[in-house]
Design a protein around this nucleic acid. Sequence first.
DNA 1: TAAGACGAAAATATAGAAAAATCCAGACCC
DNA 2: GGGTCTGGATTTTTCTATATTTTCGTCTTA
Lengths: 237, 237
Amino acid sequence: MKIIHSPTDVVPAVLTESPGTKSHRAYTQIRADILSCHHLPGTKLNIAGLAADLDVSLGAVREALSMLQSEALVVSEPQRGYTVSPVSPKELADITEARIAIEALCLRTSIERGDLAWESRLVASWHKLSRLSQTDAGKDQHLSETWSRAHADFHAELVGACGNDWLLRMRAMLYEQSERYRRMSVSMPQQTGTRDVPAEHKAIFDAVMERDVERAVAALETHLRKTATIVRSSVAL
Amino acid sequence: MKIIHSPTDVVPAVLTESPGTKSHRAYTQIRADILSCHHLPGTKLNIAGLAADLDVSLGAVREALSMLQSEALVVSEPQRGYTVSPVSPKELADITEARIAIEALCLRTSIERGDLAWESRLVASWHKLSRLSQTDAGKDQHLSETWSRAHADFHAELVGACGNDWLLRMRAMLYEQSERYRRMSVSMPQQTGTRDVPAEHKAIFDAVMERDVERAVAALETHLRKTATIVRSSVAL
DNA sequence: TAAGACGAAAATATAGAAAAATCCAGACCC
DNA sequence: GGGTCTGGATTTTTCTATATTTTCGTCTTA
């Protein structure tokens, strides 16, 4: 009789795309569960429970949580374990303001320094984003996963020529936090009425392609602020 | 014959001010050793060796290193262990530019929002800093530890009324990185000739007390840029 | 009702096993 | 002769199972 291997054995490395270590697999898994709000903000994370779920040891989970702490997705109190980072209107406001400032900074230098190769990459990701629908055909509850990916790529590409690794790292962190808030907010029926997201993206894109820094920064700020407003009113904080 | 204890043994727990966990003690110790350049940038950190030195288990060291990774003081490659974050002129430039931008941002809001209590705290830390000498009387090689502390407090207090926890967290991170570079640079004999650090601090302080945002930001930028220039020319990268 | 003791649960710590990478000597080919 | 490859030996990282310590809730008792 043929023996069925456990899932971890048969899943090829390329699919998980995580470095072989179990800590990293646990990290990836827990991270996804937090971002998808499977673990709700503010809830306590039971180390033993997670270890059982993920079929790894306590130490591995502990290390994974350490990694997540560096992304501010979980917080720890000594001797009292880990909890999913709580959310609050104040936090959302802070993140939004910080993000606007830093994205603007990155965008400025990116436009100034960006060469033809960057422009080409930007055109590519813009094209992809503009041809995708925000929602999947099947269920209009949540945003399409492909669209989210394309959206992230487009925003990353905008600042791709910035060159300052530290600013980019901070930008990435803030983007991720914003995403967490966005995903927490329930489906966005009110958006469609009051808002034209593709038009906002186009405004940014056009300004960037014309190398009009001020207009691009202003368009980006408008885009981010509108998103934050929607999320704030939509999510139950 | 009397046995000489290793430094880590004789330091009382109250001095380190760490939460009881051994992981955190290890973290504090390794962190200090990196900042003081006892562990040089780019060197590999042997987990077993550290565990032996600090008299804790592998797991505790591993967790401490995880924490340090979140501060970007160490980097890890899966299956290949941890190394002290390398330094480079590019990195120094990135950190400096990012720091100038973010400190300026924080200072702006801090001046706008700062109340009397903040002003009072700022006066206090300014007073302390202004009365301390940069170098210890005994050895003029390195900066005085008390002065460094007061300097950090003063700069932290400047932006203390900013209110945006995310920006402040990033500021703290960048300050720490700058400190690492500064401590790496050898003693600063050339500074005394070309530079008057207390005057630079006074310029910032005066502008802030007069609530002159633009002048304060300009003074701060000058201060940070000068420091970076000195460090870049002084340190062997 | 409040203080204290007890027990369960959870976090932290440790030592040793397993897995992976590195190192080194010797063989082989050009 | 020089350079490259191969196969273990060794070191180092990673993982697990277990032990210890701390915290939290509960139940008793004054």
